[in-house]
């Protein structure tokens, strides 16, 4: 007997509606700024706000630096742990999960205590220093995602044999990472990069407590003082996040393919 498809569909639609209905409602509300008509006035208001442009631009730049620093730390770390210190993997995996367990507010208070203007490394003593601290904070926050993305990418290639093949042809470790390992896990690295970007764009706690003009605090500020713009911003944030996720799926198609044919 063919099993009924009703319940699977029902469960799926119930789950989907949990996410979709509030989103549709938010979108519908964001179009109501002009009384009696649907319009994109709220969106026009948001895009024409110089604070939107400034904070969004700031978060994009911070996000890009967080991605660069993250890649420079995570790729060699995952590579050397897989190659030379495989026994350390469970410990590193646990370590990279900590940012998910430790609340951002705890993290940022720790930073402020450690790096305040009267400490040995006074990151918060200047705007630039605080920006650097914010980048490092975002690297930490995105570590679970970046680490897992890169680790999964490295699992798909034979890191040890490829390393040995490059070594015997004269390549040193830096060359191997740059020309062999990184290109073969680039799609995974970019997945991690887009996840980092998605996190950075909407992050509020750390940016707010470090008093930086980021997009997250701007969203909060608008939400507290306006009616329709917050709804428009929520939709814009969703589109950015989904765009980042869509890019991850798109990039997966371009991953270098391996073949273990025997013919």
């Amino acid at each position: 007997m063919k099993p009924s498809r009703f319940w699977p569909w029902f469960t799926l639609l119930l789950g989907a509606s949990y996410f979709i209905i509030p989103l549709i409602a938010t979108f519908e509300f964001s179009l109501r700024m002009r009384r009696g008509y649907y319009s994109f006035d709220a969106y026009l208001s948001v895009f024409s706000d110089p604070r939107f442009q400034a904070t969004f631009g700031y978060s994009v730049v911070i996000g890009i630096f967080a991605i660069i620093v993250g890649v420079l730390i995570v790729v060699p770390a995952v590579y050397f742990v897989r190659l030379r210190l495989p026994w350390l993997r469970p410990f590193v995996e646990f370590l990279t999960l900590l940012p998910l367990i430790i609340p951002a507010i705890v993290l940022v208070y720790g930073y402020i205590r450690l790096y305040n203007s009267s400490s040995l490394i006074p990151f918060t003593g200047s705007a630039l220093g605080t920006d650097v601290l914010l980048v490092f904070a975002y690297v930490t926050l995105a570590l679970p995602y970046m680490y897992r993305a890169v680790d999964t990418g490295m699992r798909t290639i034979d890191v040890q044999t490829l390393t040995e093949a490059a070594q015997i042809m004269g390549a040193n470790s830096a060359t191997i990472i740059a020309r062999v390992i990184l290109p073969n896990v680039l799609v995974a690295v970019l997945s991690g990069a887009f996840l980092t970007f998605a996190i950075v764009i909407g992050e509020f706690t750390i940016a707010s407590l470090l008093n930086r003009p980021a997009f997250g605090p701007y969203l909060q500020n608008i939400g507290a003082n306006r009616a329709y713009e917050p709804a428009a911003l929520a939709i814009i944030s969703f589109i950015i996040t989904w765009g980042a996720m869509g890019m991850i799926n798109l990039l997966a198609r371009f991953a270098p393919r391996t073949s273990a044919r025997t013919d």
Binding site: D158, L162, E164, A165, N172, T258
Partner: peptide, 16 residues
Amino acid sequence: NQRQLGMVFQAYALFP
């Protein structure tokens, strides 16, 4: 990388 040797591996090990 200092030995100037060539090697062929069981799993081909071509760079994908």
